[in-house]
């Protein structure tokens, strides 16, 4: 390197490199904007002139108009308002359930993949056991147990929904992360770290985990959409978000009955799920590329 070149050289930190790569991902940037818009509109839902449960049954199933941008539902409620309010529940459920399932999945997968042996066997058999549980029966069981809670607020809490979804979905990230740890366990940089006396936990947290971030993020982005959909399924079984509280999932579930007669009931919540899922996916793509040291962007 010449001296002139050295003068022009600017030290670039890993964070700067990561950010630079992320900001080059246009779809990810656009998606952040879209997702921010969705979140802000949910936050400012109370500004709507209609209440989320305000009914006008004689004005039911009206198509979109200037008064009701997304039309009205089968009790004459404003679908736009309910979609905005529904976003609050769905986004919380999607993000929190994903976070919780990832937390459990990453811990289980990392321990199993790194230490191997009997711990790997034990954790993976537990994972297999959870995978083989018929989710319907587990849900009915949970519902029955919760049924005896005198406090209905506890039973219908969004956080219960979050926990239930996480309980039923942590196994997939666990297996993925286990695979990643298993493979990286024998890479040169891990062996090098071991050879200079770095401890197991430090290797896991400081060396292997950062290299698995891309995988974790991809898994997370994929999980958000499915958590939103699972939430709608839970209401069929008698727990979760109960009417008249709207969520995108239960708005969509209600819309099935009117699929042909009032398609707007399906279109708008469906579109919101679609937009949110796609945005999160694109942001995930951007983050994965940004964290990937082999990325060419």
């Amino acid at each position: 390197m010449t001296e002139a070149a050295l003068d022009n050289y600017e030290a670039t930190s890993l964070t700067q490199l990561t950010l630079r790569r992320f900001f080059r991902h246009r779809m990810a940037l656009l998606s952040i904007g879209v997702l921010a818009l969705v979140i802000f509109s949910a936050l400012f839902a109370p500004l709507s002139p209609y209440g989320p449960t305000e009914q006008n049954p004689s004005n039911d199933l009206m198509p979109p108009s200037l008064d009701h941008w997304f039309g009205t539902d089968d009790l004459g409620r404003d679908v736009f308002t309910r979609t905005l309010y529904g976003g609050r529940i769905s986004i919380i459920v999607g993000l929190a359930a994903t976070g919780l399932s990832l937390l459990v999945g990453v811990v289980v997968g990392a321990l199993a993949g790194y230490f191997g042996g009997w711990l790997d066997n034990l954790l993976m058999r537990i994972t297999d056991a959870f995978l083989s549980l018929p989710s319907l029966f587990v849900l009915i069981l949970i519902s029955t147990v919760l049924r005896d809670m005198p406090n209905s607020a506890m039973r219908n809490s969004v956080w219960i929904v979050v926990v239930v979804i996480a309980v039923l979905s942590w196994m997939w990230p666990a297996r993925l992360i286990r695979g990643a740890f298993l493979s990286m366990r024998h890479h040169e940089f891990v062996i090098a770290a071991e050879s200079v006396g770095v401890g197991d936990w430090r290797i896991m947290l400081r060396h292997i985990l950062p290299n698995s971030v891309g995988l974790i993020i991809v898994q997370a982005t994929l999980s958000v959409g499915s958590a939103i959909i699972i939430e709608s399924g839970l209401s069929y079984l008698g727990f979760g978000v109960q009417p008249p509280t709207p969520s995108w999932g239960n708005l969509l579930a209600t819309a099935q009955v009117y699929a042909l007669r009032a398609p707007w009931l399906m279109i708008f919540p469906g579109l919101m799920i679609f937009i949110t899922t796609m945005s999160v996916n694109h942001i995930g793509d951007g983050l994965r590329d940004a964290f990937d040291p082999f990325s060419v962007r």
Partner: peptide, 19 residues
């Protein structure tokens, strides 16, 4: 508040703990 249950719960037996 509304609490809708699966048939098996709401129409279950005393032994099942049906409400």
């Amino acid at each position: 508040t509304i609490q809708n249950d699966d048939f098996s719960i709401i129409f279950g037996s005393l032994a099942d703990g049906a409400p």
